[in-house]
């Protein structure tokens, strides 16, 4: 069956939307000091920020997978009030203003707060460490993985899992051999989204972890600093972030197309 065509007047708001989304990115690219770009990007501070961001985001994605997958599995089976509460808890960090996430982490894990103070006394002092960066990133990024995987699990028919269980497979085997492979594309795209969100994390890191070259100053924090010091460097680094983000989104889209129910 051929789909009926869309009305032509839609082109007007569509053009507006494309201009709205495209103009800032084009404006930024137009301001890039291309000739100085290699020099700006190979500065020690820029390289340190780049590698720190990649390292912390990889670690964040790993933690998000280890903790987020089980949560997504449980939530996908949940019904009623508790599941709703769990789902809210798992999604709220997604929509929190970054600075609020940072404040929440600070109040929970700050050195002068009950929990943070107890941790510090037991020798786990995360203040101003790379660990604090990973904690901040995981707090805001894990929800993306949970939501992505839970959604996929819910829209996956139970037939195969039921068949496997009927044939005598243990719950772990069903999970490992049937349920998880079925949602593998969603896991991959959720992990890519979590990585992308961690890469852009700024407010919570700034509020909670501090800013020191090679230890806590990730790419967004370096951009924030260079905006005050040398705006050309800030723009050059922004291009790096945009490139990585675009790649991650492309990866996500690639996996989403292969998701359950679609060719």
């Amino acid at each position: 069956m051929i789909r009926p065509p869309l009305p032509r007047w839609l082109l007007l708001p569509v053009t507006a939307a494309v201009v709205f989304l495209g103009v800032p990115l084009v404006a930024l690219l137009a301001r890039v000091p291309w000739a100085r770009l290699p020099a700006l990007l190979s500065a020690p501070a820029a390289l340190d920020a780049f590698w720190l961001s990649l390292r912390t985001c990889a670690l964040t994605t790993l933690v998000a997978l280890v903790l987020g997958l089980p949560l997504a599995l449980l939530l996908s089976r949940g019904k009623g009030r508790w599941a709703a509460a769990g789902r809210t808890l798992a999604t709220v960090p997604m929509v929190l203003p970054p600075v609020v996430a940072g404040l929440a982490l600070l109040v929970a894990l700050g050195r002068r707060e009950p929990l943070g103070g107890w941790l510090a006394a037991s020798g786990v002092d995360v203040a101003f460490t790379t660990t604090a960066v990973v904690i901040a990133q995981t707090f805001v990024a894990m929800p993306y993985l949970v939501v992505s995987v839970e959604g996929a699990l819910r829209s996956t028919p139970d037939d195969y899992a039921i068949a496997a269980a009927t044939l005598g497979a243990s719950p772990t085997t069903v999970l490992r051999r049937v349920s998880l492979p079925l949602v593998a594309p969603a896991v991959a795209s959720g992990a890519a989204l979590a990585f992308a969100r961690a890469l852009g994390e700024f407010g919570a890191t700034l509020t909670f972890a501090g800013s020191l070259q090679g230890t806590t100053r990730t790419l967004p924090l370096e951009i924030y600093l260079q905006r005050e010091v040398d705006s050309d460097t800030a723009i050059a680094l922004s291009v790096v972030l945009i490139t990585i983000a675009a790649l991650l989104v492309a990866v996500t889209a690639r996996f989403s197309r292969g998701a359950w129910g679609q060719p």
């Binding site: 101003f128 501090g210 800013s211 020191l212 230890t215 100053r217 924090l221 924030y224 600093l225």
Partner: peptide, 9 residues
């Protein structure tokens, strides 16, 4: 341990 962009930070 940290070099902030703003004095208020």
């Amino acid at each position: 341990v940290s070099e902030e962009t703003k004095v208020t930070d």
